[in-house]
Amino acid sequence: MTVSFPGLQAVARVFGLLGETLWSLVRRPPPRSAVVAHLFNTGNRSLVFLAVTMGFLGMISVYQGCLQAMKVLPDLSNAGAVFIMAMVREFGPTITAMMLATRVGTGIAAEIAVMTVTDQVEALKVNNTDPVAYLVAPRFVGFLVMMILCTVYSCAVAILAGLLMADLRFQVNPNTFLSLGFTRWSDLSVGLTKTVAYGVAIPILAADSGFRAGGGSEGVGWATTRAVVNALFAIIALDFLIAGVGYLLVRGA
């Protein structure tokens, strides 16, 4: 009797794809032009989308946070320090990852899925071209690099928007708001770890969904849906895991 564990098989398949991608990067780095194209597609084309999302998020968070804080203690001198710490450690990486998963991850899944259902992926193999090296590796590098840069950009936009809200609505001095008093190196390292983990997970999960597409245009639709669902699930799981480990290792000490 054969017992199968579809969940474990899926995890093994995704880690297998990650391994193949890393191995292909070691063996032969992708052409610079392909990486630049994916850097542009992931980063430059997401700037407005990220600015709008993170700008509003920054303003809403500061507005709600200050409003609630005022009910308890009418002192907002630490509002900026708390907000910046939360943004660097938690919201900056996680919200940016969710935004990029929906905008870029779905694009990766759709592109590869179309190539899969039209036999282009098999045609690559027939032409002695490794589909992972050709399709996944440049997207992986482009996404990972831009995930880090976009997170820095998102944090900056959100902090700036929060500062404006704090200043204009609650008369918090900008110099007071821009305090790094609560932000430690451990917060930065947890934030950076999350950013890198998301930057690795999202393109691999998207590519995996694309490669598993089948059944024509409907299959492409399912692949993009699966890519975004899997990526969001992975982001939440990684967030929980890294936050927990980070707390035990550096904060709890």
Binding site: T118, D119, Q120, E122, A123, L124, V126, N127, N128, T129
Partner: peptide
Amino acid sequence: RRRYVLVFQHSTLFDSMTLRENVALPLRK
């Protein structure tokens, strides 16, 4: 696969390459 080549049902030219680049790919690879 150099000696036994398969031309797929849907032609499977690579969308992101010109016709000439499509033909050049196996020559390079």
